[in-house]
Amino acid sequence: MNIFRLAGDMTHLASVLVLLLKIHTIKSCAGVSLKTQELYALVFATRYLDIVTDFISVYNTVMKLIFLGSSFSIVWYIRHHRVVRRSYDKDQDTFRHYLLMIPCMLLALFVHEKFTFKEVMWTFSLYLEAVAILPQLVLLQRTRNIDNLTGQYVFLLGAYRGLYIFNWIYRYFTEPHFVHWITWIAGVVQTLLYADFFYYYFESWKNNVRLQLPA
């Protein structure tokens, strides 16, 4: 475990906590894409299949349980909580996210490390996570005023995989083992998808104005 990896996991944890905080305390999911939350729940469900078979460390298992639990509870809140679901903007959150799942599954069936169920599911989760933010970014472009918590959530979510890239570079130079190239590519694509958001987020922070993405 290196500092980049720990920073990445803590940033990811912070993003989840910010979103849970927003939804649980102010009972609102305005500006939050349910589609992205559903995609992330699927990402964790398909990536952490080994949670019962391969024990790596207490930290690893605890973090997996947190990410699984939080992503599914956020989906539940937005779908079923009697107050929260009223603030869900389903007319704006219209990205057809199954059009993301199908290509990712097809790609995982053709491009993977080993053709086993677990390995294909794991590869699918990497490809899916790379594009999972798209419904949320589309929704932000339609949502005129993005509230701070939602902006912080997306920023932290994008930053975590960026920190993982530094972790992969560090491990490449310091460890005999290596991270599979599929992980590298999916992680870089994922981080690049946030590039324009990061730009506008930084601009709004620098000029101390409300975050707005161009339509």
Binding site: D54, S57, M63, W122, E175, H177, F178, V179, T183
Partner: peptide, 10 residues
Amino acid sequence: DEHHVVKDEL
């Protein structure tokens, strides 16, 4: 083996 791909990340 040397070329062992790690799967210890989240």
